[in-house]
Design a protein around this nucleic acid. Structure first.
Ligand code: FES
Ligand code: FES
Lengths: 139, 139
DNA sequence: ACAAAAAGATACAAAAATAGTATCATAATA
DNA sequence: TATTATGATACTATTTTTGTATCTTTTTGT
């Protein structure tokens, strides 16, 4: 039971790093140095985030990435949906078929309830809320 | 993000079925018929549940399985722990190493909070609470 | 025009987790 | 001692996760 996959984890850390830094854009290379993760993997994640619309990218010299929206507007679920969709806690399939008991299954109902609450809580976590620390006053 | 794996799912359904029926014990064969799942897979699950201490088993003619404790005492987390341990939402490892940022990571803290709540809720779900329906009055 | 510095696109591969099968041994009982 | 049941275990297949490698395209400075 892994709520957060590595993809999402890396992505969140990268987004935090991008959000925190002051320059216009930051290159994949600099992010690799700051975050200490495998370059090709980070690059793929950045590309995915760009395609998903969370990042702007610019090529060429002094190119790099920047957020398309403010850190307050990026929720954990946004990121999870990109890398871990579908966000379901219980699909209840048997041999690739939908479970025939799904209509009157009480477990299903209970899990779904939990799911809703979890997702609500995940949605409440934003990049901004993650990077917000005392250390990091805007100066 | 799969909160419940198939193993757990099958196991819960089997436990419900065992809990619901009136005979002393129920055999794997009868469970297969009731639950409509692959026999070898169910058998393995039943064996695992037995080893884990949730089921009694008896061999030979008219052998089968029965609960060791009442359905009220079996929680979803009990079952999940057997098949999906460790129950963690966020391990945050990088290349098999623990994440070096773990000590001052706010995301980690937030996820851990959610984790605690989820587990509490899962713990509140018991086999008894799953099978409890109007249809099923003790007669 | 051309080289350098960046990201874009894709295809591939390795590892881990999940899901499922098959086979033989062991115990109980009639 | 045959039958009926579970126990133990080894094996295989599939899917998901986690990466790597390679080549193309765009931008910019010279
Ligand atoms: S057993 Fe399938 S929905 Fe519950
Ligand atoms: S990034 Fe590793 S604990 Fe948060």
């Amino acid at each position: 039971m892994k709520l957060i996959t590595r993809n999402t984890d890396y992505a969140v850390r990268a987004l935090c790093c991008i959000a925190e830094q002051k320059q216009e854009v930051i290159s994949a290379d600099r992010l690799v140095k700051s975050l200490d993760m495998p370059r090709p993997f980070l690059r793929k994640i950045l590309q995915t985030l760009t395609k998903a619309g969370l990042l702007n990218s610019s090529k060429g010299k002094d190119g790099g990435f920047s957020l398309t929206v403010s850190p307050e507007e990026i929720t954990l679920t946004d990121v999870m949906e990109i890398f871990q969709a579908p966000i379901r806690l219980n699909e209840c399939k048997f041999k690739k078929n939908d479970c025939p008991y799904i209509s009157d299954c009480l477990l299903k109902g209970k899990i779904d309830e939990i799911e809703k609450e979890v997702i609500a809580k995940l949605k409440a976590i934003t990049i901004a809320s993650i990077i917000k620390k005392e250390v990091n006053v805007d100066d």
